[in-house]
Structure formats: C-alpha cells, structure tokens
Write a protein that binds this DNA or RNA. Structure first.
Lengths: 147, 147
DNA sequence: TTAATACCTAAAGTTGACTTTAGGTCAAGA
DNA sequence: TCTTGACCTAAAGTCAACTTTAGGTATTAA
C-alpha cells in the first residue's frame, strides 16, 4: 500500500493531479485509513491505464466511465473491449498523422540545411514542388498530400 | 488568391479559427483588399506548417515566432532549422510513447476478449504478470516497463 | 513545546485554443 | 428596395485539465 506522496514519486504525477483524479472518480474503490488515501496494486494499474488512455486522447469523464465499468464486474467486459478497440483505432490513426508530420519536419530540416549552405532559397524554390532529390521528394509529397 | 471562406473549405478549418490565427500573428504578410483577407500560396503553406507544428505539440505563440523568423529572411535560417530539429526530436519521442500506448491497448483488447470467452478473470489473473502467451507478453512488458 | 512534514478539503484561479456574440459593411439578385 | 450571403471587428464566453490558495489535522523530531 502506498500514500499519495509515494505514488506521486513513483509515477512522476503531481499530488494535486492524483487528488483531482480521485475527485473526478477515477479510483472508485480507493481505500482510506482515517481520511488518508491508501493506493493499492489496483490503483497503480488504474493509474497506468489512465496515463495510457489520456495519451490516446480520451477525456477524463470517459476514463471515469471505464473505471465504473470495471467496478461493475463481468457484465461490462463487452463495453470495456469495445472502448479499447476504439482507442486502438484512434491511436493507429494518430500514429499515421504523426508520420506525416514527421515527413514535413524531415523536409523542413533538409530545406533549411540547404538554405544555410546556399545563403538563400533561390535554388530550393526552383526545385519545388517536384524536382527535389530522392528521399526528400517522397517526404515532401507525403507531407503535402491532400489540398 | 483565396478568400477566408475558400481556405476554410479547402483545409477543413473553421473561419473563426483562421481569423484567430491571423489575430495571433500567424500570417504576418497576409494581404487585404478593402478590408478583406486574401490568402495566397504563401499563406496556404503557412497553414500547412501551422497544422504540422500544432500536431507536433507546439504552442501558437511559438509558431508565431517561427512566422516572424520567416518574415525576417535569410538571417534566421539557423533558428528555423534548430526549431524544426527540436520538433522532429519531440515527435520521434511522442511516436515511441504512442507505440507503448498501443502495446497497452493491444494487451487490454486481448485481455477482454479472453475475459468474455472465460466469463471471468480468474484464469487471466493467474497468467499475470509473466505467464502470458507469446506476443501478448511482449506487449504487456513494453506497456508496463518503468514502475 | 514547538516546529516541520505529510496528509486533508473546498473553492477559486489559470492556461491555451478556440468559439460565440453583437454589431456592422458591402455587393448581388429578386 | 430589400434581403441574403460573405465578409469584418472587438470583446466576452467556453472547455478541459489542472494548479493554487487558504485553512485545517495528525504525527514525528529536536
């Protein structure tokens, strides 16, 4: 069993945030001894899931819903599975978008390396939009596809 | 040249957002004819960069800084390169974290598929934390590394 | 005994990124 | 002529996720 301060240290999450999560109902079964919160293995796993779901773009109120389903037992396995499948799809989509972002950043890094060597953007502008060197052209195209 | 309504359509960004970006100084050279904004190729590329940098986690005020550097010309190539390199590193780190998130989601999907088949979590709990089947164990471990 | 430390609450404040509102201009079509 | 639609502004409002504040309890260390 851990105190709020220990959990804060362990996870690198501010104490105020842990209290906020608790207030929002993210630890439905959290025990207390004489007013003081006692975090067990269940709450640590809950916190791992919270960090995961938050990063996957889920809002606190929807994470709370999930925690309530957990507290309700086996009758909610279906809902929980559906939720994780939805988030998995969302994260896969986000990963694809981030790959596109990375392509834009790769292109821009190359662009400004060249600009610094050349001293201006004249030559670079003459290479746009389809005479860029191998590797860079592909990144540029992926970053600019659509519109 | 495009009107604000056309750009909004083209990029799927609300008109109010485009006006907000303008007010925040994200289109330093934006022209107007009798008060009405006229978006050119430069502004479209700026908007692409804005969407990219936003997705990479950058704040509006820092994107504004970048746009001001662009307006200042060749003397700021170095700063712009540095910025894009920093964001590239940030996005690569974010991608790694999202891969970990995806591992957690893969594990949870598998977990609840099993739980639905079994009707309870007894067998599953007996497999934790290190007797999970191949493929799943790896996802679980990556999702739980650290703490 | 007092002072530091770790915990507690409720309520107000903060931040960033928008969005909405209220009021106005201007050109085209019925 | 009038009204519809696309544009404009400044200012206020919204939202989520925290964080800070102000005030209090309980235990330990000097």
């Amino acid at each position: 069993m851990y105190t709020i301060g220990q959990v804060s240290e362990l996870f690198g999450v501010p104490i105020s945030t842990l209290r906020y999560y608790d207030k929002e109902g993210l630890f439905p079964g959290l025990e207390r001894s004489s007013g003081i919160r006692r975090f067990g293995e269940q709450e640590l796993e809950a916190l791992r899931v919270i960090e995961c779901l938050k990063r996957s773009g889920m809002e606190i109120k929807d994470i709370k819903q999930f925690m309530l389903w957990c507290a309700r037992g086996s009758e909610t396995y279906g809902q929980r599975l559906e939720l994780f499948r939805r988030q998995k799809t969302a994260v896969e989509a986000e990963l694809e978008k981030l790959e596109k972002v990375l392509d834009m950043l790769r292109f821009k890094c190359w662009y400004y390396e060249q600009a610094m060597e050349d001293g201006d953007e004249e030559r670079l502008k003459s290479l746009l939009p389809d005479k860029l060197p191998e590797g860079i052209q592909e990144a540029y195209d992926r970053a600019h596809e659509g519109q």
